[in-house]
């Protein structure tokens, strides 16, 4: 189980959190004009790196705020945490599919 350093509450066990998937995904500004390929990329394609992954976490059983974690996907080591997730658009379905 991960120990996740919530930028607002400090380190807490993973069971208090929900993972919101890859960070930095931007909805195309004008969906009517973007190509099917660009829309597919936004909707479904993911970086899924074997390396450092920037991902959004939600402290659902704590402060209920979103933030961004940089984690290495081989060692699961958390390298950095920032609260910049507050400015991103939450994707409602990404967390629990």
């Amino acid at each position: 189980m991960l120990e996740i350093p919530c930028p607002f509450c400090g380190p807490r066990p993973e069971v208090e959190f929900r993972c919101g998937g890859e960070a930095d995904i931007r909805r195309p500004a004008d969906p009517d004009r973007c190509s099917d390929r660009a829309w597919t990329d936004y909707l479904w394609n993911r970086t899924n790196p074997k390396g450092v992954h920037r991902e959004r976490w939600w402290h659902v059983h704590g402060c209920r705020r979103w933030f961004v974690v940089s984690r290495h996907t081989v060692s699961d080591t958390i390298l950095a945490v920032s609260d910049s997730g507050q400015t991103a658009q939450p994707q409602e379905t990404a967390a629990d599919g």
């Binding site: 189980m1 991960l2 929900r18 993972c19 998937g21 991902e55 996907t73 081989v74 699961d76 629990d96």
Partner: peptide
Amino acid sequence: DQYVSYSQRGGIQ
């Protein structure tokens, strides 16, 4: 697990 990982371990919970 709920997060992307290549660790081949998995959480105890």
